[in-house]
Amino acid sequence: MSRKTALLLLPGLAFLAAGFLVPAVAMLVAPPGEETAAVVTRLAEMITDPYELRIIGRTVTIGLIVTGLCVGLGFPIAYLLARSTSRWGGVLLALAIFPLLLSNVVRTFGWLVLLGANGAIGKLLTSTGLADESPQMLYTPLAIVLGLTQLFLPLAVISCYSAVAQIDPGLDDAARGLGAGRTRTFWTVVVPLALPGIVVAATLVFAGSVTAYTTPYLLGGSGQRMLATQLFTYASVSVDWAAASATALIMTILVFLVSAVSSLAGRKGATT
């Protein structure tokens, strides 16, 4: 490596090490005032503790449901937009991407207005006589699922859109010409060809959902803890470093695991 190249790289690497790599590794090995093995010991306790297991289970379940919803709603949006010849297509695409620039706090906050005790949905249900009193919707798993789906749907749309846009519309026509119906063409031509994009979308959404903080904090409250809100409590309320680090480790492992599975799936998809 030439000296010039090294000079270009080193400042960036130094910041990366100081602001990310070294603290992240150090946290797992040696939380302040704890023994070296404290994190691992605590991790072993956690994965046998029913309370902790419920939080892990809730986090994974909500993550899977949100992933399903985001792909199930995001793919149709991406598909219709990619195949659209209307001039509104561009506007609708921009509308789907725009929320990514908007603060998560602002986006999640809307659900408080919709689902809260004096919220719009409760009003609608009671005034139409569908319910006698406004049902509890805020601080339920449903609220978290809705909030996370809103948050990550744009991500699913972009990933699926770039995959569908690369498929030649002529292939759809060819399948139709050979006698396949619209539904069959969709499931046997479009979906298999867009599968790598769908896998990327699912991975991003799942990883985002199991690590999100704002949504479970605002919409789940203390009754519906997820790993992220639990981690915050350990770190700043009970100041239990070993527990916080162990929770962080569980979250990180979950994300790494799903990334590994999806990159394996992607490789397999490429060879078949």
Partner: peptide, 23 residues
């Protein structure tokens, strides 16, 4: 290596920085 901060959950990075750099 430069892209690695994208993979680790941000809350985890925040905890690491709080614990190691601030405390």
């Amino acid at each position: 290596l430069f892209l690695s901060p994208l993979i680790v959950p941000e809350l985890v990075v925040g905890l690491a920085l709080y614990q190691q750099l601030m405390i």
